[in-house]
């Protein structure tokens, strides 16, 4: 539920951000002076042709990368000044990731996969196990806690990944083509789960190239050639 205009609060502020990759003597401007705010509690999708800078944008938002130039603030913190450890810490405490190919750890059980971020947060075992069970219930996999990822269907694996993304109770969930590896029926289920989470107050930023998937979001950011082309908001 979007908040009324006056109460909106920018969770992420991006101002004139450039991301340039130097390849030999040519340079690729993956992001070319983007200015954009992401407000708390919204569900964003980022659309655009291949090579338009969607993944680069998401990596930046995920604090996996720093901009070449420009201002990038996350929850009031200036990310462009942070070192690797601080970036890791920011990811750990504020961001949840969902990937196109699930990226579960094959040797760990569902429960252990969900609790993985809690290990880095140094939670004790008992609490982690309880939290994992609670989250597995929330994504409808409470009866699969002891299974390994390869014993689950694609949709179930993505649910585990969503539960994992929720483990640290993040402010923002970042998803790169979360339905890209799923059939459309399963994809719809995953999207309604994400909508549900958004309804519970999570800010979601999702990259997709399918309009049907993007329809679940309330703000659609269209990108082209490393910049924002236009923004559609639900009325």
């Amino acid at each position: 539920m979007p908040l009324p205009e006056l109460q909106r609060r920018a969770l992420v502020q991006i101002e004139n951000v450039h991301k340039t990759y130097i390849m030999g003597d040519s340079e690729v401007r993956a992001l070319d002076g983007v200015t954009l705010d992401f407000d708390e509690g919204e569900f964003y999708s980022i659309l655009g042709p291949s090579g338009s800078g969607k993944s680069t944008m998401l990596n930046l938002l995920g604090c996996l990368d720093r901009p070449t130039s420009g201002l990038f603030k996350m929850d009031g913190h200036d990310v462009s000044q942070m070192d690797d450890n601080q970036l890791s810490d920011l990811r750990l405490k504020r961001i949840g990731f969902i990937f196109q190919s699930f990226n579960l750890i094959p040797q760990l059980t569902v429960s252990e996969n969900i609790a993985l971020p809690l290990y880095y947060l140094e939670w004790d075992r008992q609490r982690s196990v309880e939290r994992a069970r609670e989250l597995a219930d929330r994504v409808g996999l409470g009866n699969r806690l002891g299974h390994r990822p390869l014993e689950l269907s694609g949709g179930q694996q993505q649910r585990v990944a969503i539960a994992r993304a929720l483990a640290n109770d993040p402010r923002i969930i970042l998803a790169d083509e979360p339905t890209g590896n799923l059939d459309s029926a399963t994809g719809k289920q995953i999207m309604s789960l994400l909508s549900e989470l958004n309804g519970q107050g999570k800010t979601i930023i999702m990259v997709t190239h399918e309009d049907e998937v993007a329809a679940h979001s309330n703000v659609r950011v269209h990108m082209r050639d490393g910049n924002v082309e236009r923004i559609d908001r639900n009325a």
């Binding site: 995920g62 996996l64 450890n85 890791s88 810490d89 961001i95 094959p106 880095y120």
Partner: peptide, 16 residues
């Protein structure tokens, strides 16, 4: 590397 990258994205520092 995918697995390690996932760990990294989940907030695991290089040190960890």
């Amino acid at each position: 590397s995918t697995e390690l990258q996932t760990l990294h994205k989940l907030g695991c520092s290089r040190h960890t």
